[in-house]
Structure formats: C-alpha cells, structure tokens
Simulated assay, not measured.
Amino acid sequence: MEITRRESGNIVILDINGEIDLYNAPEIKDVIAKLIEEQKYYTIINLEKVSYIDSSGIGALISSLSNLKKIPGWT
C-alpha cells in the first residue's frame, strides 16, 4: 500500500494505492492521527486505486472518523 498526500487549500487529500489489510491498516490511522496533530481536519481519502480492503481497513477508516468527530467544532 502506498499513501500519497496532497493539499488543495485547507483540504488534505490522501491518495491510497494498493491493498488495505490487517498488516498496513494501522498506517492509515497513523497518517490521519498526524493530520489531527497538525490541525488538518478536512481530509478526503481517495480509494480509487485501492484494489482490496478487508475489515481491518474499514475499521481503521471508521476509527479515524471517530477521532475526527471528537474535535470541537468539527463538522
């Protein structure tokens, strides 16, 4: 799996390429946690080039969304 970061204004776009599974799903959580630390709350996760995602990958995405929702004023 490869994650590429790009920005458009105050929006961060994460382009993910490859498979998201048990072994690399934590990397997604780490990248989004770093964005939260940088106060980059508006994020688009582009899954266009993801060929496979398992329940661990879905869990990482849901967990990251949950962490973003804990931020005051996040909508």
Rank of each mutant, 00 (worst) to 15 (best):
M1K: 00
I3D: 06
I3R: 09
T4F: 06
T4Q: 03
T4R: 04
R5M: 13
R5P: 03
R5K: 11
R6A: 09
R6G: 10
R6I: 01
S8E: 08
G9W: 13
G9E: 12
N10R: 10
N10F: 01
V12R: 11
L14R: 09
L14V: 03
D15N: 14
D15Q: 11
I16H: 11
I16P: 15
N17D: 05
N17F: 10
G18E: 08
E19H: 10
E19Y: 06
E19V: 11
I20T: 09
L22S: 07
Y23I: 06
N24L: 10
N24H: 14
N24F: 15
N24Y: 15
A25V: 04
A25Y: 05
A25H: 08
A25P: 01
P26G: 10
P26A: 09
P26R: 14
E27F: 11
I28C: 00
I28F: 00
I28V: 07
K29R: 15
K29P: 04
K29H: 09
D30E: 13
V31L: 05
V31S: 07
I32L: 15
I32T: 15
I32G: 09
I32Q: 10
I32K: 13
I32Y: 04
A33P: 05
A33M: 13
K34I: 07
L35I: 03
L35S: 14
L35Y: 00
I36D: 00
I36V: 12
I36Y: 01
E37Y: 05
E37K: 14
E37Q: 12
E37I: 07
E38R: 14
E38T: 04
E38I: 06
K40C: 11
Y41R: 05
Y41W: 07
Y41E: 00
Y42I: 09
Y42H: 07
I44Q: 13
I44F: 11
I44N: 14
I44H: 12
I44L: 15
I45F: 07
I45N: 07
I45W: 08
I45L: 13
I45G: 12
I45K: 02
N46C: 13
L47Q: 02
L47W: 02
L47A: 08
K49Q: 11
K49V: 08
V50K: 01
V50L: 06
S51Y: 01
S51T: 14
S51P: 00
S51H: 04
S51Q: 07
I53V: 14
I53E: 02
I53G: 01
D54Q: 06
S55E: 14
S55K: 03
S56E: 07
S56I: 09
G57V: 15
G57H: 08
I58P: 11
G59T: 02
G59A: 08
A60P: 05
A60M: 08
A60F: 15
A60K: 12
A60V: 10
A60N: 06
L61F: 00
L61N: 04
L61A: 03
L61Y: 01
I62D: 03
I62Y: 06
I62G: 10
I62S: 12
S63V: 02
S63C: 08
S63Q: 06
S64C: 03
S64D: 08
S64W: 13
L65C: 04
S66A: 09
N67A: 14
L68I: 02
L68D: 00
K69P: 02
K69L: 06
K69W: 03
K70N: 03
K70F: 00
K70V: 00
I71C: 00
I71L: 01
P72H: 03
P72E: 10
G73M: 05
W74N: 15
